[in-house]
Design a protein around this nucleic acid. Structure first.
Length: 339
DNA sequence: GTACCGTGTACAGGCGTAGG
DNA sequence: CCTACGCCTGTACACGGTAC
């Protein structure tokens, strides 16, 4: 299990730096409307590391992470127009139905949990969201203020907060996580940071990045988040894409209007099926004897090779071969002994 | 040579679902 | 309701490459 990273600097002046962070948000002269409700001063971010072990429900865990991140901070109401999305996107675009449902939830019950933003590092009078993208979007669309906690965060802290919140909630699909990891890697974040952000170990991170970079971006975009498919199926698709001319074929398949009309999981399945068919057909060949009889078919799929005998073409030839498998195997071993 | 890192493979456990 | 099954996820471990 990868550990959570501690946001507090491990130096002797950690408390001084924390105090600075706490003061930073209220001091900035930004058009902050609405309430300013100090909760309590505490070692908010650092506490994440110690408190999540026994909580089983994912949503509770995500909320706990959020609580720790916003604990001790001032909640303000911000104009969504002043807030930009994270510089590293994570979630793929939700469907309009999902957005509408979430919007209605906010409209009816209000925004219970604040989002986390940081002042833009370039000094402009704008903010950048670490987590709460959906709440922000809903507020934008409803034309209402969004309740937010403002913290000064480094780039590393921002992506860790963003990633850990998503990991806790597990509402990012495998490919969304893979993309997020690859984007962080692209931006030269250390493996340490990316591992902490996604809450994965180095092996898992390696797989995430490998898949996100080996599958062409247009293919991922065309498939979408595919929530029904995890690491194994994406790995399989990645392998399929790297065989023969499957890459070009995949790009053709995803362009088709009929493909785009499917939902995201169906798109994944359709593409995988299409590439599998192509692979097996391309590798199936007929073996012809010297007398011209098409006595067997050889079909290769991945690491498996199948021989198919047709009794109508070469009666009993299949049984003949089967009875001699041991002799063939012995001959094979003698000719090609293991190293 | 040793330590570390990234990668790939195999396996076990958990979870959801279909079928009896 | 129980069981079998398939799939996803986390983990352990081995291997190759690289830095020291």
């Amino acid at each position: 299990m990868a550990r959570k990273i501690n946001f507090d600097p491990p130096t002797a002046d950690a408390s001084a730096q924390r105090a600075e962070v706490h003061e930073a948000a209220p001091q900035r002269s930004r058009p902050l409307l609405g309430l300013e409700r100090p909760i309590k001063q505490s070692s908010a971010l650092g506490a994440i590391s110690h408190s999540l072990g026994g909580i089983s429900e994912k949503v509770k865990r995500a909320e706990e992470i959020e609580q720790k991140l916003i604990e001790g901070q001032v909640i303000v109401e911000l104009d969504p127009g002043l807030i930009d999305n994270s510089f590293v996107p994570d979630r793929m675009e939700a469907t309009e139905e999902q957005n509408a449902a979430f919007r209605e939830l906010i409209r009816e019950h209000g925004q219970n949990l604040p989002i986390l933003v940081r002042p833009k590092p370039n000094g402009a009078e704008r903010y950048e969201v670490a987590f709460g993208h959906r709440r922000l979007r809903a507020a934008r669309e409803l034309g209402i203020k969004v309740r937010a906690v403002v913290r000064s965060l480094t780039d590393e802290q921002l992506v860790i907060a963003q990633g850990q919140e998503n990991s806790g909630r597990t509402d990012l699909t495998f490919i969304e996580r893979a993309r997020f990891a690859a984007r962080l890697e692209d931006r030269k974040f250390s493996r340490e940071i990316v591992m902490a952000s996604l809450n994965v170990d180095k092996a898992a991170l390696s797989r995430l990045i490998a898949i996100a970079t080996r599958v062409p971006a247009p293919v991922i975009d065309a498939i979408g988040p595919a929530p029904a498919f995890g690491r194994v199926r994406w790995q399989e698709l990645t392998d399929l894409l790297e065989r023969d001319h499957n890459r070009a074929r995949a790009l053709e398949i995803v362009k088709a209007p009929t493909f785009r009309a499917l939902d995201t999981d169906k798109r994944f399945e359709t593409l995988a099926d299409g590439l599998r068919e192509k692979t097996s057909r391309a590798r199936a060949e007929t073996w012809a004897a010297k007398d011209g009889t098409h006595a067997a078919k050889v079909s290769r799929a991945g690491k498996k090779l199948a021989l198919i005998f047709d009794d109508r073409v070469a009666p009993r030839f299949g049984d003949f071969v089967r009875e001699r498998l041991q002799a063939l195997y012995d001959e094979f071993k003698a000719a090609d002994p293991p190293a």
